[in-house]
Amino acid sequence: MKKIMLCCNAGMSTGLLVKKMREAAEAQGISCQIGACSVSEAGEKAKDADVILLGPQVRYELKKLKALLPGKPVEAVAPADYGMLRGDRVLQAALSMTEGQDGA
């Protein structure tokens, strides 16, 4: 089962998106684990995640997270999808990031 972790400043606004992504996953019958945390907790909480997504407002933390979580796919969420809380699209983007990794 894939584990997706979303990080933002405090894990609050990403928490809203996580809820939508879980609904989308359930609707599509995809079983995966999705959580949210703050960027400063990411080193611990996202250690066992398969994909890490970053809120666009903290995309300047990308470099730090990549260093903290070597070898893991880390990317910022597209701003429009983030704002409109499009759980299905963000879920799709996250899953395609793990596929890229499996192929490598």
Partner: peptide, 9 residues
């Protein structure tokens, strides 16, 4: 919390 408005609008 207002990221949805900031990025969504």
């Amino acid at each position: 919390i207002n990221e949805p408005v900031i990025f969504g609008l």
